[in-house]
Simulated assay, not measured.
Amino acid sequence: MSSLDIVEAAHLEASNLFYRDPGLYDSVQADSDSARICRVLIDRHRPDARTLLDFGCGTGRDLEQLAQHFDCTGVDLQPGLVDYARRTRSELDVRVGDMRTVRLGCTADVLVCLGNSLAYVYDNTDVQATFQTFAAHARPGTLLVLCSPVAPIESLSPQQAHVETRLGAATVTITYEWDLRTQVNTMRRHWAFDSGEECRDTIRRRVLGPRELELYARFAGFEVLEIVNEAGALPVSGPGAYTVAHYHQ
């Protein structure tokens, strides 16, 4: 079995600067509109929703906004992120759990999996197990909202961006690799802070195309209602597409 098939908290933390420094993640992603997009999709397909479960909630940044409108619970694989969420957003119900296996013993009106969390599940069997987790927390009419890459990012030359962080300004140089056989998109980042400090991280994401997502959803008892990307009907920005499905079993 390849190391790409193993998704563990320690491996994720070691590979991603944001996971080692959750506060940095919050500061860089402060303008993310994932929660707003989620609200639009929920209002469109399940306007009466009252309860929500967030799988892969990370630092609780999106969950905090969603909790203004729903009774929310969040789950994340990484104890460091859960600890940060509990310290900085103590009003949230955030728990450590692996979305391939966790069972909370409840269902909800809405299930969400944002921030490309599903893309860190590489193995087909694990993807199927994750959808079974969604089904285990669903009842007829439950809405599922996923954000995940549906196509790889391929670039022949490095990309650069200048970002402001809580550690100061930094120039980030990014390169991408695409492995067609494994459907894994590898992003390598070099962080050069104005302070002189440097850091590198490597992020690997599994890309599931729209038809694959639809098949995994269908086998778990969900029917896909729409898949919306940046060119769709919503005014969104950033990577990833939003898959919306409802549970019918």
Results as ranks from 00 to 15, higher is better:
Ala169Leu: 14
Ala169Met: 03
Ala169Lys: 11
Ala170Met: 06
Ala170Ile: 00
Ala170Cys: 11
Ala170Lys: 02
Thr171Val: 15
Val172Tyr: 03
Val172Asn: 03
Val172Lys: 04
Thr173Gly: 08
Ile174Gly: 05
Ile174Lys: 04
Ile174Leu: 11
Ile174His: 12
Ile174Cys: 12
Ile174Phe: 09
Ile174Glu: 07
Ile174Val: 14
Ile174Gln: 13
Ile174Ser: 08
Thr175Trp: 02
Thr175Lys: 10
Thr175Asp: 06
Tyr176Lys: 02
Tyr176Ile: 01
Tyr176Gly: 06
Tyr176Gln: 13
Tyr176Ser: 00
Tyr176Phe: 13
Glu177Ile: 01
Glu177Asn: 03
Glu177Ala: 09
Trp178Asp: 05
Trp178Ser: 10
Trp178Pro: 01
Trp178Cys: 00
Trp178Phe: 14
Trp178Thr: 00
Asp179Val: 11
Asp179Trp: 02
Asp179Cys: 12
Leu180Asp: 15
Leu180Met: 04
Leu180Asn: 10
Arg181Thr: 12
Arg181Gly: 06
Thr182Ser: 13
Thr182Pro: 05
Gln183Glu: 06
Gln183Lys: 12
Gln183Met: 15
Gln183Tyr: 09
Val184Ile: 08
Val184Met: 02
Val184Glu: 02
Val184Phe: 00
Val184Thr: 02
Val184Leu: 00
Asn185Trp: 01
Thr186His: 01
Thr186Asn: 01
Thr186Cys: 04
Thr186Trp: 03
Thr186Met: 07
Thr186Ala: 08
Met187Asn: 02
Met187Pro: 09
Met187Cys: 11
Met187Ser: 07
Arg188Asp: 11
Arg188Ile: 03
Arg188Tyr: 01
Arg188Cys: 00
Arg189Asn: 07
Arg189Gly: 05
Arg189Phe: 05
Arg189Ile: 13
Arg189Thr: 04
His190Leu: 08
His190Ile: 13
Trp191Ala: 01
Trp191Pro: 00
Trp191Leu: 07
Trp191Cys: 05
Trp191Val: 01
Ala192Pro: 12
Ala192Arg: 11
Ala192Glu: 14
Phe193Trp: 15
Phe193Leu: 12
Phe193Thr: 11
Asp194Thr: 15
Asp194Pro: 04
Ser195Glu: 10
Gly196Met: 04
Gly196Ile: 15
Glu197Met: 10
Glu197Asn: 15
Glu197Asp: 15
Glu197Ile: 12
Glu198Thr: 14
Glu198Pro: 03
Glu198Tyr: 13
Glu198Lys: 06
Cys199Arg: 08
Cys199Met: 14
Cys199Thr: 10
Arg200Asn: 11
Arg200Ser: 08
Arg200Trp: 09
Arg200Met: 12
Asp201Ser: 01
Asp201Met: 10
Asp201Ala: 00
Asp201His: 08
Asp201Cys: 07
Thr202Glu: 08
Ile203Asp: 02
Ile203Glu: 05
Ile203Leu: 14
Arg204Met: 07
Arg204Thr: 08
Arg204Gly: 12
Arg204Asp: 06
Arg204Glu: 08
Arg205Leu: 15
Arg205Tyr: 05
Arg205His: 14
Arg205Lys: 11
Val207Ala: 13
Val207Lys: 08
Val207Met: 11
Val207Phe: 03
Val207Arg: 02
Val207Tyr: 03
Leu208Gln: 06
Leu208Phe: 10
Leu208Val: 07
Leu208Asp: 05
Leu208His: 03
Gly209Asp: 06
Gly209His: 09
Gly209Leu: 04
Gly209Ala: 08
Gly209Phe: 04
